[in-house]
Amino acid sequence: MRKFLVIYLCSCLIGCGEKEKFGNQGITNLEFSLDTVMIDPGNELLYLNAGLRMASLEAERDYLYNFNLSDHTIEKINLNSRKLEDKLAFEKEGPDGVGDMVYRMDLISDELVAFLGYVKVGIFDLKGRKVAEFPIAEIDFDGDRLIKGERFEFLNTYMFDPQKMVGLIRNAREKSFSLGVLDSDFRHLKKTPIPLDALENFRFVLSSPSRVQMSFPSANISKHKGNYVITNEVNNTILLYDADLDTLKKINYQPMLTEDRKKGKYNQVTETEEEFKKETQSVQQEISFMAPVWDEKNNRFYRFSHKAVNIASPAIKEEVYKSSVYLTVFDADFNVIAESLVEDLTKPPGFHFVKDGMLWLFVNLEDELGFVRLNIDL
């Protein structure tokens, strides 16, 4: 990732204060302007090893909180002054320990943070004190129960707010999915079936006597104005779940520049690494969809999609992986306003969000934290 971003910045940016504009073809003509900003870490070395997958934004987008797995601190980064403002200390072990199997952190409020593990969730205040801890695996919840073969998924399929936890539940036996809503005491569960069965066609397993490896498509849950927004990388379907009304709305749209879903058929269980790599690389050459992000200033959503156009060969030492990256712009009701190929992006964006009406895309430049900012003119 770092190599791509170095090349990307060198080709697009002359300096932090200068911008390049370029046009495109789309439903509505778009113009992009690009610049970059860097974060001043002071005397510290910011934790970038996870590509900001352990980071969380506060509601106003003024601060980025990044969990440092190396020293178990939260790096509090001021995005307005673009400086590391503080390091909040947490313990790894003991009564207030976050544990050593943390794979994600969520900022719940200005005072609370959740550390997600594979079998439990710990709630802490920002002074490092554990407020509560809840198991989420092999539990007999009140209300709807997890049946045999069901469990909460990981990665980007949890989210928190002050009242509840929302997560994606997969039934491995039935190959089906539900949305699970746990109330604030993590005891009462409500399950709502959701149509994500297509994800099962792109789950790959390498099963050999010496090694087991898995690859599976991602899904994402976010919250927007009372609705939970559920998306996945296999197709462009957007699901809106209203927890108060217990209603599920399905939004489909037809892209003008790409397919609306992955369509290939693959050998999902392989016995050699070569077969596994071939299948997983082939699926990357089909379109993949990222989660939409909300632009409060301009009252619209942005959604990236991408597909590989050049896969690295084992015979070639240098990295030659490239993707075509597309951007779709929606209004507040997810009606498509415009879509475009973003020619200056040759890899799928990593951690990104909207601040001050601009898309901020994480960049690791020689182990320094920066953001490429994309300003979009309709």
Score class of each variant (00 low, 15 high):
202 F>R: 01
80 N>L: 10
130 K>P: 02
238 I>N: 02
198 A>N: 03
345 L>A: 02
333 D>A: 12
265 K>P: 00
266 Y>A: 00
293 V>I: 15
151 R>K: 07
31 E>P: 02
50 A>V: 03
100 D>I: 10
329 V>P: 01
94 G>F: 09
307 K>I: 01
159 M>I: 09
227 N>E: 15
140 D>W: 08
138 E>L: 15
299 N>H: 14
210 S>W: 14
219 A>D: 11
134 F>T: 05
220 N>L: 03
278 K>N: 07
136 I>T: 06
248 L>A: 09
43 N>G: 15
185 D>V: 08
260 D>F: 11
150 E>K: 06
215 S>M: 09
198 A>I: 15
50 A>C: 13
242 D>R: 00
159 M>R: 07
128 G>Y: 06
228 Y>M: 12
236 N>F: 14
177 F>C: 05
264 G>C: 01
269 V>F: 15
254 Q>H: 13
244 D>C: 03
150 E>F: 13
133 E>V: 12
162 P>C: 10
347 K>W: 10
191 K>L: 11
217 P>R: 04
147 I>T: 09
193 P>A: 07
122 G>Q: 06
232 N>V: 05
135 P>W: 05
363 V>G: 06
137 A>V: 05
44 E>V: 00
318 E>Y: 15
67 F>A: 04
14 I>G: 04
1 M>S: 13
